[in-house]
Simulated assay, not measured.
Amino acid sequence: MERKLSPRLRAYIPSGTVDNTTDFLRDFCKVLTTDGSNNLVEDILACETDEELRQLVESIRTGLVVPMRAHGGKTPTEATPSPRSGVEDSTETLKGLNIEPITRNPQLQLRRHCLERDGNKCLATGYYSFDHDHPPNALTTRLEAAHIIPFALGSFRASDSEVFNRHASIWVNLKRYFPVLREMSFTSEQINSEKNMMMLDQRFHKEFGQFNIVFEAAGVPHQYRIKAFPGAVPTSVLRELPENSLVAFRVHKGSWELPDPRFLQIHACIGNFLHMSGQGEIIDKILRDFGDCGGLAPDGGTNLEDLLAVSSLSLLRTKVNETPGDPNSAEKQREQRPRGKQGSGTGNKPWA
Rank of each mutant, 00 (worst) to 15 (best):
N38A: 15
S15V: 09
V41P: 02
F24Y: 00
G209P: 10
G271P: 02
T17S: 15
R10S: 13
Q279I: 09
S90G: 13
H252L: 07
R339Q: 09
V172K: 07
Q202Y: 14
S344F: 11
L110I: 06
E335F: 06
S311A: 10
G278S: 06
N105M: 14
E335G: 03
S277F: 05
R339C: 07
L308K: 12
A11W: 08
M197A: 05
G300F: 02
T141Y: 07
L316P: 01
D43W: 03
K349L: 11
V180T: 13
D299M: 08
L174K: 03
Y177G: 01
D201L: 08
R142P: 02
L246Y: 12
P106S: 06
R157G: 05
L139D: 08
F215K: 02
P327K: 04
E240S: 10
K227H: 12
L308W: 11
L307I: 04
K332N: 14
N20K: 00
H222A: 02
R54I: 06
L274C: 05
A268V: 02
N196P: 01
D43L: 09
H134E: 06
N120P: 03
H71Y: 09
P350V: 13
Q107I: 09
D133P: 00
G86Y: 13
I13C: 10
Q265L: 01
A297L: 15
L53Q: 12
G343V: 00
G343E: 00
